[in-house]
């Protein structure tokens, strides 16, 4: 049986993935829309920055985030000046790390989906009296729906499987910042294979169910899109 620390780790992992995905969709949607539409000649710089977490070792990313979020870093000291706590080794810090780490997995599918929608449907909506905001929500978003689904799932799943960044900036505080992937690592280190089995099996089952649900849904979306 999994211990209470393991269940807490699972709960924290799910919370982290859900909150990060939500924030990623809110931040990623306007960014992806802008990237899909802008004619700005330096767009590639922004695209490269968004894609950076894909190639950077998570420990490197985590190291810089630790510096930035710690009491001496720009974000950490800003938080302290505002009367708050430095963000390193807190759940909020984990969320920030996850958002940065999973950004390309959300922005790229959205950007592709918005590019595929193209300008024409938006022009049609404009000639049908829809204001820019109106046509974004009533035309671009529904037409890009499969992209949103892909983005949400990839963002969620990627955060779920995160290890290096969390280890660097969250440490490994059971009941506060310990997530499943790190708990499994700890159990294996301690040769407690039973607990490792419980946790790993649980995560495996959950991920499989989630992905199956998504692919089943996505098939329906494709039928609608034809």
């Amino acid at each position: 049986m999994p211990g209470s620390d393991d269940l807490t780790a699972l709960w924290i992992t799910l919370q982290l993935a859900a909150v990060s995905t939500l924030i990623l969709l809110v931040v990623g949607t306007p960014l992806a829309w802008w990237l899909a539409r802008t004619q700005w000649r330096f767009r590639f710089v922004v695209e490269a920055m968004v894609a950076l977490p894909l190639v950077l070792p998570p420990t490197v990313l985590g190291f810089y985030l630790l510096i930035a979020l710690g009491p001496e870093g720009p974000i950490g000291s800003l938080m302290e000046a505002l009367g708050g706590q430095p963000l390193a080794f807190t759940f909020s810090g984990l969320v920030i790390g996850s958002v940065v780490y999973s950004l390309p997995f959300v922005v790229q599918p959205l950007q592709n989906a918005f590019s595929a929608v193209g300008r024409r449907p938006m022009e049609v909506a404009a000639t049908l009296r829809a204001s820019p905001m109106d046509r974004f929500f009533t035309v671009a978003v529904p037409l890009a729906a499969p992209g949103f689904l892909t983005a949400a799932v990839l963002g969620f799943a990627h955060t779920l499987g995160e290890f290096g960044v969390v280890l660097m900036i969250g440490g490994n505080i059971p009941g506060s910042t310990q997530v499943v992937s790190i708990a499994v690592y700890d159990h294996v280190e301690a040769l407690d294979y039973t607990s490792a089995h419980w946790l790993s099996g649980g995560l495996l089952l959950m991920s499989m169910l989630m992905l199956m649900a998504v692919y089943a849904l996505n098939r329906r979306f494709l039928v609608v899109r034809l």
Binding site: R120, L128, R129, V139, L143
Partner: peptide, 20 residues
């Protein structure tokens, strides 16, 4: 006057219905 405030009807070369 932006396009959505012009009392214009526009029929494009390809039908351009909203598929959703």
């Amino acid at each position: 006057v932006p396009p959505h405030r012009r009392a214009v009807g526009y029929v494009f070369q390809e039908p351009s219905l909203f598929p959703h």
